[in-house]
Design a protein around this nucleic acid. Structure first.
Lengths: 227, 227
DNA sequence: GACTTTAGTCACATTATGTGACTAATTTGC
DNA sequence: GCAAATTAGTCACATAATGTGACTAAAGTC
């Protein structure tokens, strides 16, 4: 029921966790910013934008992603809102977006940005550390509901590359024959007429993420994933 | 990097979609509030609270849920943040929480609250309508990742009741034998020594949602749910 | 006591998945 | 040139999960 003056707008930050595969591991895009206060040093933070205007979330997040990745056509989705712990911008509320950058397309706009593998992260603020954890958990949770694995690959890819993405995200090895049989049954990918010779070994055929031909199966209830 | 005066805090609303099963359908808790302006009439809205203080989201959402449902021990989770369309409180940003109320426990604090089945909703603001849709979609998406079906039932329940909840959420009938076999395999429920005679037919044994005994199976990749 | 209704189980067919071994095509080392 | 190594891709069989109809059990209704 708030009737407030027009100039007084809400303030919050939009934070973007951009992930890409790097050396069989996920890497996150960080930005180097001044530490603030009298401190003349810099520190690495998850890129964020303060929401000052009346801009809606979709536009805000698009802008934030374009600024940090340099590309606009990145798949992204909202993860949630966070209030706990300190934030580098002192924002009280942060809306977290997750962006997935295709392998090999992980360029940076300038020297203020860099990719860090999750195993070699610099220290982050408490809230941003928690947000990063949530973003990574989100990728894994959505793995078989959204085509997140395909968003981490370029438009065409080999089936071995696809399997490696799944193995990275699941944290365990998969059997090649099972993987391909399930993939074929779902009719999710279609072969191109291109082949890639990767140095040693037999060349691999390139595939693209294709429109599904078979209708989604109606499986029974799955209790074994409940926690 | 914002250094702003202490008194100037951000404003946003916390909105709560509380759901409960009612007549083989989901029902949502709405609140009757004055329409605002010169209008002396009332309208039904999704209960919301304005975040004025520096209170964190967990506390805020807990308070909002307690105010509208009268109970504090309800399972709830954050769905996301919304900016699109008008909001009954004119808030620029709404954080949506989903609360699940067990069947038969759908009391209301006072006459300003009432449960509406999804098929007989009153008109809602554009943003709240969208939030309700998202909340319902969230329940279905989480169905086999979180024990949402069990949160819509009282502490003890019959297996037929559990199956009905799943059928309601999935929107299709399930085969009794398959359902129970999968449930037994996951060791998710344990029988009590109570039975319920529901008028006609053989009495049903009551079960409770029990601690899992078997470890979660490590299944292969599922491509057939991808969209 | 026959009929209806709901609970609960069984057995069998079908489908999905785990797994090792196989063939194919290329580079590397000698 | 040719064997070994390396990566791609497929096959066949064993095992496990799921779909399905028919059955038995225990209550109420007439």
């Amino acid at each position: 029921m708030s009737r407030e003056p027009r100039g007084k707008r809400q303030r919050y930050s939009v934070d973007v966790v951009a992930l890409t595969p790097k050396d069989d591991e996920l890497a996150v895009l960080l930005e180097r910013r001044p530490a603030g206060g009298r401190d003349r040093s810099t520190r690495w933070v998850i890129p964020w934008t303060e929401a000052k205007t009346g801009e809606g979330l979709p536009d805000l997040s698009q802008r934030a992603i374009r600024n940090s990745t340099g590309t606009a056509t990145i798949w992204n989705t909202q993860v949630g809102a966070f209030t706990g712990g300190p934030h580098p911008g002192d924002s009280e509320l942060s809306i977290l977006y997750l962006a997935l950058v295709p392998m090999g397309q992980s360029t940076v706009p300038d020297e203020h940005f860099a990719w860090f593998r999750l195993s070699e992260l610099p220290p982050l603020s408490e809230r941003q550390g928690q947000m990063l954890q949530e973003a990574v958990a989100e990728v894994r949770d959505r793995l078989d509901l959204d085509p997140v694995a395909f968003k981490l690959l370029p438009a065409t890819f080999t089936l071995s590359e696809l399997q490696q993405i799944y193995e990275m995200l699941l944290g365990r090895r998969l059997h090649k024959a099972s993987f391909r049989r399930a993939l074929a049954a779902a009719a999710l990918v279609e072969p191109t007429d291109e082949w890639r010779s990767e140095g040693r070994g037999r060349p691999a055929q390139l595939y693209r993420f294709g429109p599904r031909k078979r209708r989604r199966s109606r499986r029974g209830v799955r209790f074994d994933l409940l926690g």
